[in-house]
Nucleic acid binder design. Sequence first.
DNA 1: GTAAATATCCGTATTTATACGGATATATAT
DNA 2: ATATATATCCGTATAAATACGGATATTTAC
Lengths: 210, 210
Amino acid sequence: MSRINLIIADDHELFRNGLTELLKKHDDINVIKSVADGKAFIEELKRTKDLDIVLLDITMPNMDGFEVLKEIQTLNAAVKPIIISMHDDGNYIAKCAKSGAYGYLLKNTDEDELVKVVRIVNGGKKYFSPTIAEKMINFMSDQKVSENILSQKEKEVLGLISEGFTTKDIATKLFVSTRTIETHRANILRKLEVKNTAELIKKATQINLI
Amino acid sequence: MSRINLIIADDHELFRNGLTELLKKHDDINVIKSVADGKAFIEELKRTKDLDIVLLDITMPNMDGFEVLKEIQTLNAAVKPIIISMHDDGNYIAKCAKSGAYGYLLKNTDEDELVKVVRIVNGGKKYFSPTIAEKMINFMSDQKVSENILSQKEKEVLGLISEGFTTKDIATKLFVSTRTIETHRANILRKLEVKNTAELIKKATQINLI
DNA sequence: GTAAATATCCGTATTTATACGGATATATAT
DNA sequence: ATATATATCCGTATAAATACGGATATTTAC
């Protein structure tokens, strides 16, 4: 039986090394390298034959996990990425799933779960735990609301409002009448269910619109 | 020579276990236990004699690192806490230093540094690396600005503005004339160097004023 | 292909916010 | 103890935002 060839990419050296020690205990898993950022990983990827799995952190310098996922797709590489993140934001999870991750684990996962997922993914199957999958679903429904509730133009206007431009400024900038911008503002206020600019900006920051 | 008795408190099981494996390699360090949250640690603390050091994460369920630091002080325990965090926010660092931490390490510290700090701290000395110390200093000066630039009253007014109350609303609520609130608003805008409410609320959220 | 949403336009009126400029009593800090 | 900052007050004026109500062409969705 051939062993599972694996690389760890995480900018936290203590975590990376600790994880290596943990995985060493499992005979069917072969940690061939660990790297501290996405760029270093991509270089390894190009150099290494028979790489099965990469355990990938999201937040890394140089090139973060999302970019690595994209690059893996671009290169059409055979490596199967498993995300190991400490964020259980549906946001992150959904983004990873869309970008081709084979699994998503939290850093508080236990060793058994980790090893289990490595084996499942190595077999070519994707694995997202029920809890993780749920977070993702919840996010996607919320997201739909906050991302799609405003039109492109409205989002643009909102952005300019948040930068301190007045209605007149914005109208000039966008080559339309102030009346148009006023209508946009009114619609934005209505859609976000707020009654004035102050509340609007607060809400918009809360739901990540600006 | 007696060994250094150490407990790890971190909610990320993979990190905790990996760290344990790493430290096992050093004969003078004795990892007597690892726990997943602050509360569990405090219980261990009460039970365990001759505990020298705790490696403490900030973000944990039940009782976070800050609370643990406070509790250690309250109990007047002899254990010397070293924070291992992934956040290099001056904010966090300053808070920990104030609360009696003996050291502050980032999770991307290397093994040598970790072991070095454990030994230094075990000798009774505090250790904050130059980089960490610098972040803390920078934060403390920034903090002074953003926390002290507005008066209590101005902060109160700002809070109400951000909730969508108008000048008139606020005047009524605070039993003063609208003119007073208008002056407050003008002063707030001037102090934060913004020109209208939209920009104000954005800036205020950015610098954590609301 | 029809319905719904969007982007754009217009008018009138009211309410709010901002910009000037100036004042006093109290608390805080050096 | 004197200077500085704060909280409070007032007037006048302009600029900006919000609230009504209504319209059309285009794009998007089902």
